[in-house]
Design a protein around this nucleic acid. Structure first.
Lengths: 136, 136
DNA sequence: TCGTGGTATGTGTACACTACACCTATCTGG
DNA sequence: CCAGATAGGTGTAGTGTACACATACCACGA
């Protein structure tokens, strides 16, 4: 049992089967709902399916999004606690939010199609397997 | 306009916002519906949202899935055309299909949540942006 | 005043999946 | 014999993600 190595992970992955770049899309949505800073987004983002987001990746993503001109940031020096960088959407960011929502809506439809087809075969697939494996 | 470099792609990507490993999941479903060979799957898979899958990646993925024990292959030497390798699900493959379907169903719910929240703010987001940008 | 813990923001890096270009082999039909 | 469809395959660079780790500020109790 030392060098098992089977199943190559693929599932049991932290973020199961969520879309690529879902982090970016989620950040656009949350910041679109209300300007926020990273640590704040870190909490909220779990509601959208991203459990245990690593802070590093989140901050890095925000920075890249700023470089891309999707969000703009400004430092807030509050009296309590360390300074925080608050992000808000730019006009480009709004455009991208709309674009992403469209792409995700399409993915949503494809997932419906997938799940529909899966439900059709879910009960028979095991039986079919039996036929194949028992005979030879 | 030479060194533009903006928008760093991220959208306009071939596979928009489809789940990670969606190729694997789709192959499991299609092979679960009926045993098939790679070139055949290449056609069918477009129905699930994957437009323009590169053949290389598909064959490679099938091979990895075989290494992982999710599918089993056998060569079919037909009289017409080159030989083809037909894949069918193993018992493990069926398990993984069920697991993937579960994960995708969860993602489907999260996408619903995302789209619901998006629809709530879709009309107001641009207006909010105006307030911010006009005033200062 | 020292250190501990929570808030808040970051860097380094390895790995997996993807994308794109390219290659080989078999058979059919002109 | 060669073009084109079928069928399967390799090489490799780029991107996104995961995980470990580092920094700074402030409040609070020992």
């Amino acid at each position: 049992m030392a060098t098992e190595g089977k199943s190559r992970k693929s599932l049991e992955e932290p973020q199961g089967g969520l879309p690529r770049n879902y982090l970016r899309a989620s950040l656009l949505l949350l910041i679109g709902e209300a300007p926020a800073h990273g640590y704040d987004l870190l909490d909220q983002i779990a509601q959208l399916g991203l459990r245990s987001v690593d802070p590093g990746g989140l901050y890095r993503t925000l920075r890249v999004m700023e470089d891309d001109g999707l969000v703009a940031s400004s430092w807030q020096h509050s009296s309590a606690g360390p300074a925080r960088r608050t992000y808000r959407l730019t006009a480009d960011g709004v455009d991208w939010l709309h674009a992403w929502a469209g792409a995700l809506r399409e993915s949503h439809r494809y997932l419906s199609a997938y799940l529909g087809r899966y439900d059709d075969i879910a009960t028979t697939v095991s039986a079919t397997l039996d036929e194949v494996t028992i005979l030879p």
